[in-house]
């Protein structure tokens, strides 16, 4: 069974723009907020923007390789969130805050 491609109706450029916007919202969140957890969420948002584009192009080229890539991105994201939140918990225990402006020890 073969239906007409979605790209006959929705040009792939639309997907490009949507994922670019989602990505930039993620960037904005990273720059805008001080709460480290929200920054983490923004990073998830950025990853998802990229995922969306990968899936879109996977369909565009009728190639499942792109979707496999999304799998790996999800695996890495899951690992990253687990470790990242563990680090945040450890930091929170020490300074009682998850405010990145409190974490200025990068400069000695």
């Amino acid at each position: 069974m073969a239906l007409l491609s979605i790209f006959q109706t929705v040009p792939v450029h639309y997907y490009l723009v949507v994922s670019a916007m989602l990505f930039c919202i993620g960037v904005l969140g990273v720059l805008y907020r001080r709460n480290a957890i929200i920054i983490f969420m923004s990073i998830e948002l950025m990853l998802n923007a990229v995922n969306l584009l990968l899936v879109a192009f996977s369909a565009y080229h009728n190639d499942s390789g792109g979707q496999v890539f999304v799998f790996f991105v999800m695996a890495v994201a899951a690992a990253e969130v687990a470790v990242g939140l563990a680090i945040l918990v450890a930091i929170f225990r020490n300074v009682h805050a998850v405010d990145i402006d409190e974490l200025k020890n990068l400069k000695w």
């Binding site: 069974m1 073969a2 239906l3 007409l4 491609s5 979605i6 790209f7 006959q8 040009p11 792939v12 450029h13 490009l16 723009v17 670019a20 996977s58 369909a59 565009y60 080229h61 009728n62 190639d63 499942s64 979707q67």
Partner: peptide, 18 residues
């Protein structure tokens, strides 16, 4: 992205890839 040169879209969608 506006400069991106893309292949023409496929006429039909293959539902089996997902």
């Amino acid at each position: 992205f506006k400069r991106a040169v893309l292949a023409p879209p496929p006429p039909y969608q293959d539902f089996s890839i997902g």
